[in-house]
Simulated scan of single mutants.
Amino acid sequence: MRRRNLTLAALAAGGSLALLPGGAAWSAETYPDKPLRLIVGFAPGGGADALTRIIAEGLSKQLGQQVIVENRPGADGVLAAQATSSAKPDGYTLLMGTNTAMVAAPTLRPTAPYDPFKAFTPISSAGQFSMFLVVPSSLPAKSVNELLALVAAKPGAYNSASSNSASELAMLQLLGERKVVNARYKGDMQAMTDLLGGQIHMMFTTGTLAPGFVKEGRIRALVTLLPQRSALLPDVPTGSELGLGKLTITPWAGFFGPPGLPQAITAKLSQELQNTLKRPDVHAQLVQQGFEGYGMSPAKFTEFFRAQYDAFGATVRQHNVKFE
């Protein structure tokens, strides 16, 4: 009882202690005082894993504590998300979440695995994956308008490729009522191989794959989904430049904590993540991965998250997309 009274007295006096759910105390001056766990829903060695490790190393330097990356692949990132959601909200378990687990899974599945706005605390954006619409050089389309004209002239004669729901829905937004046959691949590299061979006519792919082939003249990049031109392919216009306001799907990643994460912890983590993403060493490594890193305040990130979720859901309903 005496310890409890002292804690309450400190709070009443305007001290820096706060009570976590369950009654544990947290101090702004001492947090973090042990390593953090950053969960990612993809296997080691992949693009999302590489990005997570780059940011984790920078965050470790910012916080003065080790940030340990934990891979929990499977179920489209849902396993990693659920592990985070059920963790203690003390600031020591974070999620590197992407469109797949935070938007696609709860939107497309007949039974949503969780409500992403109740099961997590948004902390900060991590940034956006560079995504480009590409076509083989053999296809007689040098612009988005020329591509759309080809598709409209021969409904069903052309095909597209995808390896994730974000690229599929972006293609649906681009094409509107124009018909193509979509082929689903397990990864972009397999799809790119077929596009280079002429079996595939168009696809949205990442900044990791596209630039090299564009510079070799083997494919053309017609538009980027980024809100600004990418340094990887600065000659490729954005959707807004082309008047394609309907392209609202953005392949992004962000940081989340368990529900009930105290505001003070959320704010500190958000600021340190934003500082991490501004570090020259982190920025340079992310650019090499085709990733545009930037942070947001919790409020801004929540607003962005909601807008992306709503746009995704609207496209799913408009085109009657079903989970398979």
Score class of each variant (00 low, 15 high):
Thr7Met: 13
Ala10Glu: 15
Leu11Trp: 00
Leu11Glu: 11
Pro21Ala: 10
Thr30Arg: 15
Tyr31Arg: 12
Ile39Asp: 00
Val40Ile: 12
Val40Phe: 03
Gly41Ala: 09
Gly41Asn: 04
Ala43Trp: 00
Ala48Tyr: 14
Ala50Glu: 10
Ala50Lys: 13
Arg53Glu: 13
Ile55Gly: 01
Glu57Trp: 10
Gly58Leu: 13
Lys61Phe: 05
Val69Arg: 11
Asp76Ser: 13
Ala80Cys: 07
Thr84Ala: 14
Met96Lys: 00
Ala101Met: 08
Met102Cys: 05
Ala104Glu: 07
Arg109Ser: 11
Pro110Ile: 08
Lys118Ser: 08
Ala119Tyr: 06
Thr121Asp: 03
Pro122Met: 07
Ser125Val: 00
Gly127Lys: 10
Ser130Ile: 03
Leu133Thr: 03
Leu133Phe: 10
Pro140Met: 06
Ala141Cys: 04
Leu147Gly: 01
Leu150His: 13
Ala153Tyr: 01
Tyr158Ala: 08
Asn159Thr: 00
Ala161Leu: 04
Ser165Met: 09
Ala166Met: 11
Ala170Thr: 02
Gly176Gln: 07
Gly176Asp: 05
Gly187His: 14
Leu195Ala: 01
Met202Ile: 09
Gly207Phe: 13
Thr208Gln: 13
Pro211Thr: 06
Arg220Ser: 11
Leu222His: 02
Leu225Arg: 14
Arg229Tyr: 08
Ala231Asp: 15
Pro234Cys: 14
Pro237Tyr: 04
Thr248Leu: 10
Ile249Tyr: 02
Pro251Met: 05
Pro258Leu: 08
Gly260Thr: 08
Leu269Gln: 09
Thr276Phe: 00
Val282His: 01
His283Thr: 13
Ala284Cys: 00
Gln285Leu: 08
Val287His: 01
Gln288Ile: 02
Gln288Lys: 15
Gly290Thr: 09
Phe291Asp: 10
Tyr294Leu: 06
Gly295Glu: 07
Pro298Gly: 08
Arg306Cys: 09
Arg306Gly: 06
Tyr309Thr: 09
Phe312Ser: 03
